[in-house]
Nucleic acid binder design. Structure first.
Lengths: 336, 336
DNA sequence: CTGAAAGCGCTTACAG
DNA sequence: CTGAAAGCGCTTACAG
């Protein structure tokens, strides 16, 4: 078995120096005035031998890698999976590869991932951050790394951020329920102190207080990593121990669990009981009646993220950080 | 702003050689008989400075990376997302990181990804392969790399593979429909020449032919990358131009599109019309009536994959390739 | 038009 | 108990 080829082997075979091979490899043949004859010859040898430069060595030398690190909460969450896929697609066309990884909402794992990306010299970081990694992100910034946050903002960091106005979206959703004549609107949310969640809670609260409909006992905060069964049990209690005629679910998976519970309890979703879910999902269109949802503009978010990253990467000069906030869309599905 | 620390800086500050620092870094202090005093001192400096070794340099030197490359068709497909998440979780605990990427069923992209992983010196490859990359995989094997295939097998390659008996699963599903008294059982599948899909078609066909119920016109093969709208249109035609009393969907997303179509056509899924979907999905439990599905043992698959990889990685000696085939589980949901 | 040499940050065989 | 030096495979400033 032949060992991996190196630039030295190519140079040897072509009878030129490795410098020359390197120039040709990097498309600098013209610039460096390598003769056409030599260029062709070397290119042929490279082609025939199937030689691929060792990117590790290249990165070690140049300090960059054409790799963008993407850190999300959970890649199996459809929201992140969709964003990741679109980002990957666009980045790929520009010659960048994406490495993604999930934090599972653990600070230690998030820090670990940042360190791993750092020690692998990724060119840029796209991070859906969690509280507790502010300092790590600051360190990246101080290091002049390209960092774009998304989904969740982190207080006190003045850097590129792409997000959605969750407060407004939540107000809209709650208001739609109020205007539909609901008096006992529950909120099922996750017990996580991240802005994109607390904003949703705040919007719900603000609208209900304004309409004198706010009831503390109708808020259910589900601990992040508890079992599915416990979650369903708590929802069951919420729905059976209180008079509830509408519910706003703050996340996708909570909505799905919740719908399952409502199904078990044989609660009819009709003109007397309405549901709005946060983050749209294909299921919601399939159910009868369909389920209303707050839809985040996935493609716009992904586009903006990758645009920001690529533009930061291509210019030396520091531009001011951009905070891009998209509106979410409330999809009311009143048909049956 | 201070530049990144290197081992040299640590050695300088500690007043020892970089050799000594390297030994300590790699836990060889005892083995190399470095004095306790020096060890403690160096460790303290490392700790205080926040120094992290450059993995690129380490990999360049040692030839391995503690990174496992995972190549799937589409990371936003729930099946792959779930597998990826589980593999990542287990690998992480063993000190391995996972990089994943999607091929989108394009041979060129798949080859590109393999090359990228190769040039980054990943320690192992986990691949859900597509036809056309046999040679690339062979090259990896010849290079003594650890490669584990899953989901889809590739003819002519005798290497580690973890999969599911799709032929059997498809037979079971079709048989369940036949035994339920269905006479006109349609198959909606994807027009892809990969074993895990063709096996499903073969199982369907075999059972129907045996029962003299096979009808060519009830098979609909959807081109892989056509628009959602076209797909739905074709399904509409299938259902309206033929007498159909049951349908087997060969993939998850086809089933979801199909259910949407059936909903539009106001086809009632009742004792006169039955659906079985391939790959289970949370939606199927939420619908009324619920939808039967073929369930792949995700966790068992993920476990086996990562076990194989880790065991290959930890032993020098070549073991015989393992072909692990799990049975799928038919979940009949007859309740309403 | 082309090459010798330094250096990126590590690891490790060898020497003392 | 510890260090000098070679080398992993590249890129690039400098020299001719």
């Amino acid at each position: 078995m032949k060992k991996t080829l190196s630039i030295k082997d190519i140079a040897l075979e072509a009878g030129v120096s490795i410098t020359t091979v390197s120039f040709i490899l990097n498309g600098k043949a013209k610039e460096k005035a390598i003769s056409d004859f030599v260029t062709k010859k070397v290119e042929k040898i490279i082609e025939d031998s199937g030689y691929k430069p060792n990117q590790l060595a290249r990165s070690l030398r140049t300090g960059n890698s054409n790799i963008i690190g993407l850190i999300v909460e959970d890649i199996s969450n459809p929201f992140f999976a969709a964003i990741a896929k679109m980002i990957e697609y666009k980045a790929y066309k520009k010659g960048y590869k994406i490495i993604y990884s999930s934090t599972e909402n653990e600070v230690a794992k998030a820090q670990d991932l940042i360190n791993m990306f750092k020690s692998r010299k990724v060119d840029a970081y796209i991070i859906s951050p969690i509280k507790g990694i502010e300092d790590d992100i600051k360190a990246l910034i101080n290091d002049h790394k390209t960092v774009v946050l998304f989904d969740r903002d982190l207080a006190g960091l003045n850097i590129d951020y792409v997000g959605v106005d969750h407060f407004k979206a939540s107000c809209d959703a709650t208001l739609a329920l109020v205007e539909g004549g609901r008096k006992n609107i529950a909120l099922v949310t996750i017990d996580l102190d991240v802005k994109q969640i607390t904003d949703r809670q705040a919007g719900y609260r603000e609208v209900l207080e304004k309409h004198k409909l706010f009831k503390e006992e109708l808020i259910l905060k589900i601990p992040f990593s508890q079992s599915e069964a416990e979650t369903e049990q708590q929802m069951k209690e919420l729905f059976s121990q209180n008079k509830v005629d509408a519910v706003l679910f703050a996340t996708n998976y909570l909505a799905i669990s919740g719908l399952m519970v409502l199904r078990t309890l044989a609660v009819k979703r009709d003109k007397d009981f309405e549901v709005i879910a946060y983050d749209d999902h294909i299921v919601f269109e399939l159910l009868t009646p369909q389920v209303s949802a707050v839809q985040q503009p996935l493609e716009a978010i992904a586009d903006k993220i990758i645009d920001l990253v690529l533009s930061r990467l291509s210019t030396k000069e520091k531009k001011l950080p951009q905070q891009v906030i998209f509106p979410a869309k409330l999809i009311l599905r009143k048909n049956t």
